[in-house]
């Protein structure tokens, strides 16, 4: 089977599932069992979404949320990858940071929101730091595992060929650990995306997808809430499939270090 036909088939299957779910929802919404204001029909939600896109408010909400998530996620990558690699390379670094990671990791990032609000106030600083907190641990742990999974033969071969510790890091350890690092990026982004919406509900004002949902509750705008949820789902899907999926295809799958998913 060709690649294209596999894609079409999986897209068709996904469409069937989504259409079915939409049909169930639409039936419920129109049945009159629930108040219309609480369960708007899909055309109403779509109308609201279009209106919010046209007047630009949705674009700004998305922009704020993306800014926070990308900022926090980038910080998490900048800290998690080097620290994870150092932990995998040096016992002393591992001994020092592993207990810290083990202690902090089980604390849900949202539990920190009230604390961070006290420290940093409401706004970007707190939301970005919550994202950073949520994304750092999956990044760190995957980088750490990745280094320990690097084939020792690559290190030997590179050592014989005169690689310095710095070159070893960039030219052997990072690419050698890349299947784990990419998995870490994926998991970290997912956590970041979940955390940003929650953090915005509690610690943002005026802008952001999470904030919109929380704010809409005050005015019983269920259509705005559902429209925002749809946008959150779509952006998450785009990152998961297009950004990280493509990254995987042009690196570890091309290098034969990881197989593409079987249909």
């Amino acid at each position: 089977m060709t690649n294209a036909s596999v894609h079409i088939r999986s897209a068709r299957r996904a469409a069937i599932t989504l259409l079915f779910a939409a049909a169930v929802y639409e039936t419920l919404a129109r049945s009159g069992i629930f108040a219309a204001a609480l369960l708007p029909t899909l055309p109403q939600v779509a109308q609201t979404l279009v209106a919010m896109l046209v007047d630009g408010t949705m674009v700004w909400h998305v922009a704020y949320t993306l800014y926070r998530v990308i900022f926090g996620f980038s910080l998490a990558v900048a800290v998690g990858v080097p620290l994870g690699i150092l932990m995998g390379r040096f016992r002393a670094v591992e001994n020092f940071f592993l207990p810290l990671a083990s202690a902090l990791m089980p604390i849900p990032s949202l539990a920190w929101v009230p604390v961070f609000i006290l420290w940093f106030g409401i706004g970007n600083t707190t939301t970005i730091l919550i994202v950073f907190y949520a994304a750092t641990f999956p990044m760190l742990l995957n980088a750490w595992s990745g280094v320990r999974a690097v084939n020792p033969l690559w290190l030997r071969a590179a050592g014989v060929m005169g690689a310095s510790e710095r070159r070893l890091f960039w030219k052997v350890i990072v690419p050698g650990a890349s299947p784990f690092i990419i998995t870490g990026l994926r998991q970290a982004f997912l956590r970041a995306w979940i955390a940003v919406v929650g953090a915005e509900m509690l610690a943002a004002s005026n802008w952001g997808l999470g904030w919109t949902i929380f704010d809409a509750k005050e005015f019983l705008n269920a259509d705005v809430m559902l429209a925002s949820l749809a946008v959150i789902g779509c952006i998450g899907f785009i990152f998961e499939r297009l950004v990280f999926g493509s990254l995987e295809r042009i690196t570890v799958i091309r290098w034969g270090m990881m197989r593409a998913a079987k249909d």
Binding site: L153, R156, A157, G159, V160, G162, V172, G176, T251
Partner: peptide, 19 residues
Amino acid sequence: GQGQDRGVVFQDFAQLFPW
């Protein structure tokens, strides 16, 4: 230690850098 005055070939095919 190791150095460029020696070249090494191992038994395992996985010695090449896959990337």
